[in-house]
């Protein structure tokens, strides 16, 4: 076992892990931050998407030890300081961008990553940015709409009716 220390959602945390301990396992099992999910074993579904040093990554495809000293942020760290939903989270709620909620944390993290570098993405850019996030419930329609809305764009063209 090796000691690992990182900053997660602004808090310094440490624990001892095996070489094979995945970052997502450390986050879920050791830190009990269970908002980051595991939906596949081939690094494709994106339910485990988090930010490491400001970059979107799949926490299931990185060892905990690779994040030693890193700045990690997960879904649990996304809310506003008063605990209320942030702009992206609020847009997901407003536009029904989630159903069962399992892929949602990864979607929110992917959306935040996109809007950081592209403040007014087009519908196509959003759809392409979600390539690594699979949702089985929503058909993506309302996720795309939510992200457009979160970026302050008009979504009346994406209206359902």
């Amino acid at each position: 076992m090796t000691e690992v220390t990182m900053t997660v959602n602004g808090k310094t945390v440490s624990g001892s892990v095996e070489g094979r301990t995945l970052l997502v396992e450390f986050i879920r099992n050791d830190l009990h931050l269970t908002g980051t999910h595991v939906g596949c074993d081939t690094s494709q579904c994106g339910a485990c998407a988090i930010h490491v040093n400001g970059k979107l990554v799949k926490a299931c495809t990185m060892f905990a030890l690779e994040a030693d000293g890193a700045e990690v942020s997960t879904i649990e760290g996304q809310a506003n300081d008063d605990g209320s939903l942030n702009v992206i989270q609020q847009a997901f709620k407003e536009h029904h961008g989630l159903q069962c909620g399992f892929c949602t944390p990864g979607m929110v993290m992917a959306a935040a990553d996109l809007l950081k570098t592209n403040s007014k993405p087009t519908e196509l850019e959003i759809r392409e940015h979600l390539e690594g996030n699979i949702c089985r419930c929503t058909g993506y329609h309302n996720i795309v709409k939510a992200i457009l809305a979160a970026s302050g764009q008009d979504v009346s063209n994406i209206a359902a009716e």
């Binding site: 494709q44 990185m62 990553d113 390539e131």
Partner: peptide, 9 residues
């Protein structure tokens, strides 16, 4: 290549 998260690693 892959997706945004994969391209970051």
């Amino acid at each position: 290549i892959g997706d945004a998260a994969v391209r970051n690693r």
